[in-house]
């Protein structure tokens, strides 16, 4: 198989954030989901039912498949959150715990 490398057709201002402890380069205006896609990261969470891996699907806030934990807050739609310098993003595993 020829891998489907994701890449950018132009460069703008670069910012950096963290995904699962790894530094990820993003560009201003990217959603978290877009930046992860450009970095070649497709596995964003485990389904809460079977534990199967999931990634981006609709990129427009409808499908909720790209749920991740952002700065400690679970259940964030990666496609609806704009990247900011220093964000800490983690894969979401199963159902989010409710902290009271």
């Amino acid at each position: 198989m020829v891998p489907s490398r994701a890449r950018r057709i132009e460069e703008v201002r670069t910012i950096s954030f963290e995904f699962e402890g790894l530094a990820v380069q993003a560009q201003e205006g990217d959603s978290v989901a877009a930046a992860l896609t450009a970095a070649g990261i497709v596995d964003l969470r485990d389904s809460p039912v079977s534990g199967a891996p999931r990634g981006i699907y609709c990129m427009m806030g409808a499908c909720f498949d790209c749920l991740v934990e952002i700065d400690g807050q679970p259940n964030r739609q990666a496609c609806m959150c704009e990247v900011r310098e220093g964000l800490v993003v983690r894969r979401q595993q199963g159902r989010a715990e409710l902290e009271l």
Binding site: P3, R7, D30, A34, A35, T37
Partner: peptide, 11 residues
Amino acid sequence: LLKSSGIVRDN
């Protein structure tokens, strides 16, 4: 991805 971030996937 292309419209909002100029990202494409090859192949």
